[in-house]
Nucleic acid binder design. Structure first.
Lengths: 198, 198
DNA sequence: TTATGATGTGAATATAGATTCACTTGAGGA
DNA sequence: TCCTCAAGTGAATCTATATTCACATCATAA
């Protein structure tokens, strides 16, 4: 039999694996059998720790939210100033995309309708929460004088979010051929010119 | 019985309805029963005109591609200059989003993994084709001197695509509260500043 | 007007995947 | 050491959809 685990640890492990599946196949291709196999369990064992499929997806989204929000908070405190925080955030996203990490793909799949109403609403909240955090960084930038005061922070935040999604797609589609680091550097120049003072 | 139609007309009608369903529910929630009901048919009748579910989705994507590409070609010939063409394109997308039209949502769902490999690859091709067309407009802009020559057209095209998707999500999530026309005007200012000469 | 093929229908059938359940097993406290 | 319960298993179910099929009906061309 598989190594036993207490349910708290197992839940986290399963939620994390669920995030991976979501990144690779999207919620359409997400199924319990796959998920169970990844953590070395039999499908029915998943039900020891979760109510059902929706519950697993819910937990995966919670985990995703925590990771992404933490990422924004991290760059905010690490970077010297707001613009550098955004640049660092963009770079981190690129690295996650490059490593096949879950986050960016989920972010992309976030935009899609479908799924139970409750789950969709949750995805939307997460996305909006992310945008709100980026928006806060931009406001900081305005206060410190780095960002033009005639820029609408919410609009700029949305544009920032929009830089990441297409990159994730191209990486997925073109694979190695697409140099995401170089792309991110170029698109950052554009963004900077759009929002920075001067 | 339902009004009869020859299979060519019926195929188009079904593909168009499929696009609507896709826009509302995503490919996850897409099912033959729903689709059939929309065109006033019984599920099994769909199989008179399509091989099966995948075939319908394939036709819907073809239709989507034609519509979107035509949209880009249209603004290109209607507008006086490349930058105005892009602005018009953005406005048209906004209108489609506002009217609940299919295109933008599908564009969003385009980024999601999942679905049969063949279908995913098709989605990716369509997206890249769209970006390539926008890229061509930007190159025009560089030749006419409207767009800075140090802007990488492919990068700018991707950024342009990135302006649309988050807007579609917010419209979907916030509904009436989100004034998409105003948003698009603001984000266009940012984009213009990033790429326009001066 | 009638024969024929294309469309449409409703009732099966097929299948994938989620979920349940009775049973097993291992780890930790009495 | 032995008990007990949480965690794991495999074999059923259950369910939602896709898909097939035999039959009905309309349009039209001879």
């Amino acid at each position: 039999m598989t190594q036993r685990m207490n349910t708290e640890a197992r839940r986290e492990q399963i939620a994390s694996a669920a995030l991976d599946v979501l990144a690779e196949r999207g919620s359409e291709g997400f199924n319990i059998a796959d998920l169970a196999e990844r953590v070395g369990l039999v499908p029915s064992a998943v039900y020891r720790h979760f109510e059902g499929r929706e519950d697993v997806l819910d937990a995966a989204l919670d985990l995703f939210r925590d990771r992404v929000y933490r990422l924004v908070d991290a760059v905010r405190s690490e970077a010297e100033n707001p613009l550098m925080a955004l640049e660092l955030l963009l770079t981190r996203h690129a690295k996650l995309i490059e490593s096949g990490g879950a986050a960016p793909h989920i972010m992309a799949s976030m935009n899609v309708p479908g799924g139970r109403a409750a789950r969709r609403s949750k995805r939307e909240k997460i996305f909006m929460g992310y945008v709100a955090r980026v928006e806060a960084v931009i406001r900081d930038g305005q206060e410190s004088g780095q960002v033009r005061s005639d820029v609408d922070p919410a609009t700029a935040a949305l544009l920032f979010a929009g830089m990441i999604q297409p990159a994730a797609l191209l990486r997925h589609s073109e694979g190695e051929r697409f140099d995401i680091t170089a792309h991110v550097a170029r698109v950052w120049d554009l963004f900077r010119r759009a929002v920075a003072r001067d």
